[in-house]
Computed example of a mutant assay.
Amino acid sequence: MTFTGGAYFSWAEFRASAAFLGIQGQPSFRFEECKFNERFRDDYEWGPIPIPKDNDGLPAGAVWADFPEEDDKDGGTTNR
């Protein structure tokens, strides 16, 4: 995916791992109220996106979330 001016992920949910690599130039990013799956905490790759020391390893405005997973047995959901 190519971002020419900025990328705004506000209120997005990343339920699996993601890699923000290969970003060129100085685009701006927004992650207000953006949720990242805590289960994949060690699998996100941020590339040039700044990660403040006081935001628990996430871009400014983003939070960790515990997403329910589908239960393969009966189609329900479970929290892990």
Score class of each variant (00 low, 15 high):
Met1Cys: 02
Phe3Thr: 02
Phe3Met: 06
Phe3Gly: 05
Thr4Leu: 12
Thr4Glu: 14
Gly5Asp: 06
Gly5Ile: 07
Gly5Lys: 04
Gly6Gln: 03
Gly6Pro: 02
Gly6Lys: 02
Tyr8Leu: 13
Phe9Asp: 04
Phe9Ile: 02
Phe9Met: 03
Trp11His: 14
Ala12Leu: 11
Glu13Ser: 15
Glu13Asp: 12
Arg15Ser: 08
Ala16Lys: 10
Ala16Trp: 13
Ala16His: 08
Ser17Lys: 07
Ala18Gly: 09
Ala19Ser: 14
Phe20Ala: 04
Leu21Trp: 03
Leu21Met: 11
Gly22Leu: 01
Ile23His: 07
Gln24Phe: 05
Gln24Asp: 13
Gly25Arg: 09
Gly25Leu: 01
Gly25Met: 07
Ser28His: 09
Ser28Phe: 13
Phe29His: 05
Phe29Asp: 03
Arg30Asn: 10
Arg30Asp: 14
Phe31Tyr: 03
Phe31Leu: 10
Glu33Pro: 01
Cys34Ala: 09
Cys34Ile: 05
Cys34Trp: 02
Phe36His: 04
Asn37Phe: 02
Arg39Val: 05
Phe40Asn: 05
Arg41Asn: 10
Asp42Trp: 07
Asp43Gln: 14
Asp43Tyr: 08
Asp43Pro: 04
Asp43Trp: 07
Trp46Tyr: 00
Trp46Lys: 01
Pro48Cys: 01
Ile49Ala: 01
Pro50Ser: 10
Ile51Leu: 02
Ile51Val: 04
Pro52Trp: 03
Lys53Gln: 11
Asp56Arg: 12
Gly57Ser: 12
Leu58Ala: 14
Leu58Tyr: 14
Pro59Cys: 03
Ala60Tyr: 08
Val63Trp: 05
Val63Gln: 15
Val63Lys: 12
Trp64Gln: 06
Trp64Pro: 02
Trp64Glu: 11
Ala65Gly: 01
Ala65Trp: 05
Asp66Trp: 13
Asp66Gln: 09
Asp66Glu: 13
Asp66Leu: 14
Phe67Lys: 05
Phe67Tyr: 10
Pro68Trp: 06
Pro68Thr: 10
Glu70Arg: 14
Glu70Cys: 13
Asp72Ile: 15
Asp72Met: 15
Asp72Glu: 15
Lys73Gln: 13
Lys73Ala: 12
Asp74His: 08
Gly75Thr: 06
Gly75Met: 08
Thr77Asp: 09
Thr78Met: 09
Thr78Asp: 11
Asn79Leu: 07
Asn79Pro: 00
Asn79Ala: 09
Asn79Val: 13
Arg80Ser: 12
Arg80Leu: 15
